[in-house]
C-alpha cells in the first residue's frame, strides 16, 4: 500500500488506500455512515440505500462507491438523514416487524439504526403483507415477515459457505428470499454456516437461543449502533 488517497467527509480529511470504498475508509477513520445491508467481509450489496452519501453533490451508496482523491463527501447532513429515515420507515411498513416481542430486539440492526436516527414510529402506512415462515429446519427458522432483503444470507451462503442455499425470487414488492429446496430442511444449511449468522434482523433465527440475553445487556441497549466504529476515532 504505497499510495494514500485523501478526501473529505463532512469537511474533515479522511485517508484511505486505492480500491477502498467510502464505507471502508470511513469505518477505519472512525466515521459512522448509517447502513443496513452492508456487512464487513461480504460482497457489498448496495440495496438498502441507507448509506447514501453525496459525493461532490451526487448521491452514491457509500458501501459500493470507491474513494477518489479530493472528493467531498456529505454524510451526516439533515437532508441525508431525513432520506435515511424515510428508507428505514419503508422497511418497517413493507414488512411485518414486531420489535416488542421479537427475539432480535436489542440486537437488531434495523431497530438500532431507527433509534439512532431518531425514529419513534414510521410515518408511512403499513402494508401488512402476507409473508411465509419456514420452521422445518431443526436448528434454524426463517420468518420472511421480518426480512429486509439485504442479501447477506444469499452472499454468505454462496461466497463463504459455498452452498447457495438462498436466492431472491420474484420482483418488486413481491421479491422475497427463497431456499434451494421446497423447505429449509431440504437444503444442506447448517447452523454453523456463515449464512446463519449474518441476518441483521429477525428473519433468520437460531432455534432455542431466543431471549437468552437479558434486557440491559443486549448489543444496542446502552450505546447506539455505530459506537464501536466511532471509538476508533482518534
Amino acid at each position: 500500500m504505497d499510495k494514500t488517497i485523501t478526501f473529505k467527509i463532512d469537511g474533515v480529511d479522511v485517508k484511505g488506500c486505492p480500491g477502498q470504498t467510502i464505507m471502508e475508509a470511513a469505518d477505519k477513520a472512525g466515521v459512522y455512515i448509517p447502513r443496513l445491508c452492508y456487512m464487513k467481509d461480504l460482497t457489498p450489496h448496495g440495496s438498502c440505500r441507507v448509506c447514501t452519501v453525496k459525493v461532490d453533490g451526487r448521491a452514491q451508496a457509500a458501501c459500493t462507491q470507491p474513494i477518489a482523491e479530493g472528493v467531498e463527501v456529505e454524510n451526516n447532513t439533515d437532508e441525508l438523514n431525513e432520506k435515511r429515515r424515510n428508507i428505514i420507515d419503508m422497511f418497517f411498513v413493507e414488512g411485518n416487524h414486531f420489535c416488542m416481542f421479537c427475539e432480535k430486539s436489542g440486537n437488531c440492526e434495523l431497530q438500532a439504526v431507527a433509534y439512532r436516527l431518531g425514529i419513534c414510529a414510521p410515518k408511512y402506512p403499513f402494508q401488512f403483507p402476507d409473508r411465509s415462515l419456514d420452521a422445518t429446519h431443526p436448528d434454524i427458522f426463517i420468518d420472511r415477515n421480518r426480512c429486509i432483503l439485504c442479501g447477506r444470507c444469499v452472499n454468505a451462503s454462496r461466497d463463504v459457505d459455498g452452498k447457495s442455499v438462498f436466492e431472491f425470487v420474484g420482483r418488486g414488492a413481491n421479491k422475497k428470499i427463497a431456499v434451494n429446496s421446497d423447505t429449509l430442511a431440504g437444503t444442506n444449511m447448517s447452523v454453523t454456516d456463515k449464512a446463519a449468522n449474518v441476518c441483521p434482523v429477525g428473519a433468520i433465527i437460531k432455534k432455542r437461543v431466543g431471549f437468552a440475553v437479558p434486557i440491559g445487556k443486549r448489543l444496542y441497549d446502552t450505546q447506539p449502533i455505530g459506537s464501536d466504529i466511532e471509538v476508533t476515532k482518534s
Binding site: 438498502c48 428508507i87 422497511f91 413493507e94
Partner: peptide
C-alpha cells in the same frame, strides 16, 4: 426489480 428499498417500496 425490487433490488433497492426506495424503488421497491
Amino acid at each position: 426489480c425490487g433490488y433497492c428499498t426506495p424503488c421497491r417500496t
